[in-house]
Computed example of a mutant assay.
Amino acid sequence: MSELNYLEKLLDGVDVEWKLLGDASFFEIANNGRKPVKSSLRIAGKTPYYGANNIQDYVDGHTHDGEYVLIAEDGSASLERYSIQYVTGKFWANNHVHVVRGKTRVNSRFLFHYLHIVNFIPFLTGGVRAKLTKGQLIEISVPIPCPDNTEKSLAIQSEIVRILDKFTELTAELTAELTMRKKQYNYYRDQLLSFKEGEFEWKALGKIGEVRMCKRILKSQTTSEGDIPFYKIGTFGKRPDAFISRDLFNEFKGKYSYPKAGEVLISASGTIGRAVIFNGKESYFQDSNIVWIENDEKIILNKYLYYFYQIAKWGVSEGGTIQRLYNENLRKLEIPVPFSGNPEKSLAEQAKIVRILDKFYTLSTSITEGLPREIELRQKQYEYYRDMLFSFPKPEVAEA
């Protein structure tokens, strides 16, 4: 059965009318109860205190009690994926959210799912902090199947909610599993990198290899497009937003230090200690702000270093506007080397630790494998069916 036939079967020939959120016979806007409270004046309690994007605190008392949909008034983290929250029971709403719910003819959970596909940008006003005023909120239209037959309308809405909730429940379960796996990964990482007395030796990184860095690239030498990605602190571990020419890359790579595939790059400023394993693809890195240890893998495995860096206590120098990890601090950082008197046994132990942590890391972090990938697929599946189930024909002018 095609998706269109399924939707047609669900509607069973009934009409769909578009109703504005300002239509008081279908929707309630309960903004009057909202009450912002400064964090210093909030009384601690068990009631969730909602802001534009999430729960900000837990307080005593409440402003609302029931099933509602919260729509950001201003401060949404994303304008394209506008902040919509679903709440039940007692809660406290501040003045950065509109508090809305369906009346007897509208399932509030149906409203919640539908609002996720609304393009809010045309309804927003203001500059830097775009705002959805109540005057614009009430102009947003919502599809209501068979509005003159409440029982049939609610049955159709409930079926759509049932289907979409199955996907959101699965995503929530996978997300909870991912959180547990990350805790498990952190636990085993910390345990595996803790050794019994006599089974390891502390060695300074300066004794393992030399601190290296690329030659400085001037801003005037970079472009917004080009052949070779150039990574600065702000884009380290992310997508680059600057590039250099291939000629400059070849010149600097030939004259100055350049990492080998597998070596671990470290942020020495800003996000101090962030580590990325260099994949060997052609790219260039910002001078002294991104460094690495040119170590001998016959003594210390790169991947072992990478995992240790995640729990290292970096010797950060104070002073100045921005803290940084100077080379001397990095050289002094000590790393536990298992069975250092027996290189063969040491490398075998390091490799064993890496194998175990790789499995946990892949499951909890990889965007191409494991739970993150599964969550992404389930979210796309939810969005596909949500868009299909709300593909009602829309008239040019919404009915009030």
Results as ranks from 00 to 15, higher is better:
residue 5 N to L: 15
residue 7 L to F: 06
residue 8 E to V: 13
residue 11 L to K: 02
residue 17 E to V: 04
residue 18 W to H: 03
residue 21 L to N: 01
residue 22 G to W: 08
residue 28 E to K: 07
residue 30 A to W: 04
residue 31 N to Y: 00
residue 32 N to Q: 13
residue 33 G to E: 14
residue 34 R to D: 04
residue 35 K to S: 04
residue 35 K to G: 14
residue 35 K to A: 10
residue 37 V to K: 12
residue 39 S to E: 14
residue 40 S to Y: 04
residue 48 P to E: 07
residue 49 Y to D: 03
residue 50 Y to W: 08
residue 52 A to D: 09
residue 54 N to A: 10
residue 57 D to M: 12
residue 57 D to G: 03
residue 58 Y to H: 05
residue 61 G to D: 04
residue 62 H to C: 03
residue 71 I to Q: 04
residue 72 A to E: 07
residue 73 E to V: 11
residue 75 G to R: 11
residue 75 G to Q: 11
residue 77 A to S: 05
residue 87 V to Y: 06
residue 90 K to L: 14
residue 92 W to K: 08
residue 96 H to R: 03
residue 97 V to P: 08
residue 97 V to Y: 03
residue 102 G to W: 00
residue 107 N to I: 11
residue 108 S to M: 02
residue 109 R to S: 06
residue 118 V to T: 13
residue 121 I to H: 05
residue 129 R to H: 14
residue 130 A to G: 08
residue 130 A to T: 03
residue 132 L to G: 07
residue 132 L to Q: 05
residue 138 I to C: 00
residue 140 I to P: 00
residue 144 I to A: 01
residue 146 C to D: 05
residue 148 D to Y: 15
residue 149 N to T: 11
residue 149 N to W: 09
residue 153 S to T: 06
residue 159 E to L: 10
residue 159 E to G: 05
residue 160 I to M: 06
residue 160 I to T: 06
residue 166 K to N: 14
residue 174 L to I: 07
residue 177 E to F: 11
residue 180 M to C: 15
residue 188 Y to S: 09
residue 189 R to H: 04
residue 197 E to M: 02
residue 201 E to F: 06
residue 203 K to P: 05
residue 203 K to G: 09
residue 208 I to L: 13
residue 212 R to Q: 15
residue 215 K to P: 08
residue 217 I to E: 06
residue 223 T to C: 12
residue 226 G to S: 14
residue 229 P to Q: 06
residue 229 P to G: 01
residue 232 K to A: 13
residue 236 F to R: 01
residue 236 F to Q: 00
residue 237 G to W: 12
residue 240 P to W: 09
residue 240 P to R: 01
residue 245 S to R: 13
residue 245 S to Q: 10
residue 253 K to M: 01
residue 255 K to F: 01
residue 263 E to W: 04
residue 264 V to K: 00
residue 271 T to S: 12
residue 271 T to R: 12
residue 272 I to V: 02
residue 273 G to S: 13
residue 279 N to K: 07
residue 279 N to Y: 00
residue 281 K to Y: 08
residue 281 K to E: 00
residue 282 E to S: 08
residue 286 Q to S: 07
residue 286 Q to Y: 14
residue 288 S to H: 15
residue 299 I to M: 07
residue 299 I to H: 01
residue 307 Y to V: 05
residue 312 A to W: 02
residue 313 K to G: 06
residue 314 W to L: 09
residue 316 V to M: 10
residue 319 G to C: 07
residue 320 G to H: 02
residue 326 Y to I: 14
residue 326 Y to C: 09
residue 329 N to E: 12
residue 332 K to P: 02
residue 332 K to R: 12
residue 333 L to Q: 06
residue 338 P to M: 10
residue 347 L to R: 03
residue 349 E to K: 05
residue 351 A to E: 14
residue 354 V to C: 12
residue 361 Y to D: 12
residue 363 L to R: 00
residue 366 S to E: 02
residue 368 T to N: 03
residue 368 T to H: 01
residue 370 G to K: 02
residue 371 L to M: 14
residue 373 R to L: 15
residue 375 I to D: 12
residue 378 R to D: 12
residue 379 Q to D: 13
residue 380 K to P: 07
residue 381 Q to H: 15
residue 386 R to Q: 13
